[in-house]
Nucleic acid binder design. Sequence first.
DNA 1: CACTATGTTTTCAA
DNA 2: ATTGAAAACATAGT
Length: 273
Amino acid sequence: MPELPEVETYRRLLDELLVQQQLVTLEVLDAHVLAVPEDELRQAVVGATVTATHRLGKNCFLELSTGQVLALHFGMTGDVGAYRHDHDRPRFTRVAFHLADGLRVAFIDPRKFGRIRLAGSIAEFQRAKKIGPDALAITAEEMQQGLGKKKTLIKPALLDQRLTAGLGNWIVDEVLFQAQIHPERLANTLTAEEFQALHAAIQLVLRTAIEHEAVYRHFPASFLIHAREWDDSATPGTEAHRFCPRHPKVEIGKHYVGGRATYHCPSCQLLAT
DNA sequence: CACTATGTTTTCAA
DNA sequence: ATTGAAAACATAGT
């Protein structure tokens, strides 16, 4: 589930567990998630101390005492865990960083779309990956400048990490719902007021999600996310509710925009201006 | 078995 | 240079 709020939550955990700790062993259980040769990574990591953590969009960085930076991307299913003994190792742990006191920090990723990279600096990584300003840092004016020129639908534009980094599929739907903008509006037809509303919605959604450590079922009832199917029947009281939080009689629609499943309220989010 | 999935990257076309 | 559609990646869950 790693969009910006999840990655920020992971970063906070990694910060607590790793900062000022020395990495003594690199355990690679599945090299598929490594985007650098294993030996090179081991050489960079073993013996180094983590001096700080950072986040940019959906990327988390571990700054090493050597000056190098470990860049973690969690793909679609990445997660972070901690354990002390092999028999407690989380399922789907692909890489583990061992600390001097025995704690092991796991990079977990069932579907293996996540990647661990090495970079000289965050700035270098950002340039190489063409990552835009973080979604929590970007201003409404910058958004208007970046997205306002795009002759594409607003939803794919918001998902484009080069324009603003950190928004993923469900967050974009939530943001567009909160800003009451239809996902298929052309980006270059949005007004300054609409960019202001988008910016405010991004702040609201991201801050709320981080506050709840990205546990969706704890989000306010005013959020569209409850119409998604994930947290359904398993726990009583968490069934997907199919109606708009603002229009109890209007069913949330599901269709595909830019190839991605998209939920929106046909009453709040109109195509015509 | 059929189908979906929170993300990115590539490829091919218009 | 843009934009878009589709496929690919690897696998779990329903």
